[in-house]
């Protein structure tokens, strides 16, 4: 493992820690009603903490991308371009299906987040395989 790869691994771990912290804080806010957080102030504070950790995650992601080498950046860019396109096109079509009552359930934002995650992961895997 060369110096560049070692640094990249360290930044990946930092990003993973921020992402895990953000997910935990998001889950905490999402399930606050089940945790009997009846105080609006407490829920607001938890939401603010989630937002601040989210900003930290964005900073870690920016730092991660910024320090990738040029091929790794290209793989990321290709995956992100595919993700953005698919999220907008499929997301809007899905929303229209809901608005026109063609699907029997509501089009939730979580479905879109799931689609984004899957598309991005597949895009990265295809890019890594292409330049192997």
């Amino acid at each position: 493992m060369n110096a560049h790869t070692q640094k990249a691994k360290k930044r990946t771990i930092i990003l993973a820690i921020w992402t895990a912290a953000w997910l935990i804080s998001l889950a905490f806010v999402s399930f606050s009603s089940e945790l009997n957080l009846e105080s609006h102030m407490l829920t607001l504070a938890a939401t603010l903490v989630n937002l601040i950790i989210g900003l930290g995650m964005i900073w870690a992601n920016r730092n991660y991308i910024k320090n990738l080498d040029e091929l790794q950046k290209k793989i990321q860019l290709d995956a992100m371009a595919a993700t953005l396109g698919i999220a907008v096109v499929v997301g809007l079509s899905y929303s229209l299906l809901d608005i026109n009552n063609i699907i029997p359930f509501d089009a939730e934002i979580s479905h879109l987040v799931f689609l984004i995650g899957i598309t991005y992961a597949v895009g990265i895997a295809i890019g890594a395989k292409k330049y192997q």
């Binding site: 060369n2 560049h4 790869t5 080498d69 040029e70 091929l71 790794q72 330049y131 192997q132």
Partner: peptide
């Protein structure tokens, strides 16, 4: 490839590609 990657500060996969 790893030596070259180290010298020019990229990943070994980039040198390979």
């Amino acid at each position: 490839q790893a030596d070259l990657a180290n010298h020019v500060e990229v990943s070994r996969q980039t040198i390979n590609a």
